[in-house]
């Protein structure tokens, strides 16, 4: 499931993806706009910098910005870094694997086998959804809403 860390990280990147080229955003600005504690946000931004999605500049006009075009950053890229392997259940991951305590035979576990399929489906959606596409979704929703309002 999506953790708070993952959720806030995506919101922060969503924010940065909306900046004009060359403009940087300070973390206080993001934290106030999206209602995230600044301390928590700073820790998340540090992870995102470490994994190569955002970069910082100090001083006047400094802050955070994306390292590359938002259409090449996928939601799935970010969530693997913030939340670990995409897996709906621990035994469905090879690298963050934990066995369930109450499981006699995981190879015959119907829940696990189902969740292995779910995992692939999650990856298929998230690895094809870019930050640009996220912003587009919001735009489309707004346009739909305006249309409904105009018609009523």
């Amino acid at each position: 499931m999506l953790s708070m860390k993952g959720k806030y990280g995506l919101k922060a990147l969503y924010h940065l993806a909306g900046l004009p080229p060359g403009v940087m955003a300070q973390s206080i600005e993001i934290s106030e706009k999206h209602g995230i504690s600044k301390k928590f946000l700073d820790a998340i931004l540090a992870d995102l910098r470490h994994s190569g999605f955002v970069q910082t500049r100090k001083g006047r006009g400094g802050g955070y910005c994306l390292t590359r075009s938002p259409d090449s950053i996928m939601v799935g890229h970010v969530l693997r870094v913030l939340d670990g392997p995409l897996a709906p259940i621990h035994c469905a991951s090879r690298t963050a694997y934990h066995r369930c305590h109450d499981c006699p035979d995981e190879n015959a576990c119907a829940v696990r086998l189902t969740m292995l399929e779910v995992r692939e489906a999650i990856a298929a959606v998230l690895d094809n959804k870019s930050l640009t596409a996220m912003r587009q979704m919001v735009e489309d929703e707004k346009a739909d809403l305006d249309e409904v309002l105009a018609a009523s």
Partner: peptide, 25 residues
């Protein structure tokens, strides 16, 4: 071979992050 899935691998990250992941795995 470990049956890694795409869901396990931190794709899209920088080379440094990826190499760190590979070494620790």
């Amino acid at each position: 071979p470990l049956k890694l899935s795409t869901a396990d691998i931190p794709i899209g990250t920088s080379l440094a992050y990826m190499m760190h992941w590979l070494r620790s795995t």
